[in-house]
Design a protein around this nucleic acid. Structure first.
Lengths: 183, 183
DNA sequence: GTTGCCATGTAAATGGTTACATGATTGG
DNA sequence: CCAATCATGTAACCATTTACATGGCAAC
């Protein structure tokens, strides 16, 4: 039974397809790329790899590096099929966001207007920090895969857009003026 | 002890501050506004309300509507202080995304180029669907609170930006041409 | 009289993060 | 020889989602 492939499992399949063979290497690859829009933490990766192996979507061979035993995973044909099936799946993909900065702004009405602007400013710095980190990586890192680069650029663009939105929100809040307090 | 205020708890405080008194009404208000950037589901709301009450951040009085008992919550002064403290908190706010469309695109390299474009197209329709839903609500619904409107407009803008990004990604993938297959 | 909404609640399962533990290898 | 990195793993915990269950009220 192909049964239930978890979302973390799908990332693993994709990463293994790209040639990242060990749990450790996969984790590093996730941190370099999908973490921005789909995270996975090390504590969940190893058990999930074993589950995938049990489901026969991946196979592993022991690969000794000196005395260190590591598991080198590769896709089975069922795994390749599962990956393709997921990519071509016409069902609505998950899209959700947890944006505490926006959430704070949503409730900032209880604060005086100057502090409301501060809330947006702090929201902006989050996006700016992300943006400058990503932009510097864009120049220093190599992007082997064109789709890795493309999705990376999505993150750059979205953070830039959000920063600009914050700037314009700050202006519109300030324009309302420090004395035009919300009731 | 003010101790640990969970993120769901914070949304509840904010909603109660706005005058949404019952768990049910709070849930409805969340669905109308913060769901886009901070969800909470009904199963978690009632227990969390009781936890907040135990922590003395909110107080409830029984409010009978005929034979239906409902709990009308309001903020205590400690609750108001906790809300203000959170809003003014200079620490880095949470910002994360789960974007399956992007994730699929990240791994779409295993597919032929025409199907890669399809992956982006499906990602675009997600944003388009959201966008048209939000835009229609923008004209029909009333936005009592200006910050409710502002954060709502953020979601509109972000989905529009993402749709445009998809369109340009589709063009750049198509330009690469159906014969320039990825290695 | 029945459908749909208001209203509250619990239990189980899910999915994930964090922290801890271990140990080998590599490079300075 | 020490620190950093490679490598795997487990246990505890956490928040949240889903499903189920109950029942009154309002409108048609």
């Amino acid at each position: 039974m192909s049964a239930t492939l978890t979302n973390t499992g799908r990332v693993l399949l994709g990463m293994i397809a790209e040639g990242h063979a060990t749990g450790y290497a996969i984790k590093a690859a996730i941190d370099r790329s999908t973490r921005l829009y789909w995270g996975a933490s090390i504590g969940g990766i190893y058990p999930e790899l074993r589950r995938l192996e049990q489901a026969e979507l991946v196979s592993s061979r022991d690969d000794f590096r000196g005395g260190t035993r590591r598991h080198a995973y590769s896709l089975t044909s069922a795994g390749r099929a599962a990956l393709h099936g997921w990519l071509a799946d016409p069902s609505e993909p998950v899209l959700e966001m947890r944006h505490e900065g926006l959430l704070r702004l949503r409730f900032a009405g209880v604060l005086p207007i100057e502090e409301q602007v501060e809330v947006v400013r702090r929201m902006r710095t989050v996006h700016e920090r992300r943006l400058s980190e990503l932009e510097s990586r864009l120049t220093t890192e190599e992007f082997d895969d064109p789709l890795h680069r493309l999705t990376f650029e999505f993150s750059v663009g979205w953070n830039a857009w959000a920063r600009d939105w914050c700037l314009s929100a700050e202006r519109s809040l300030t324009r309302r003026g420090p004395r035009a307090a919300k009731r």
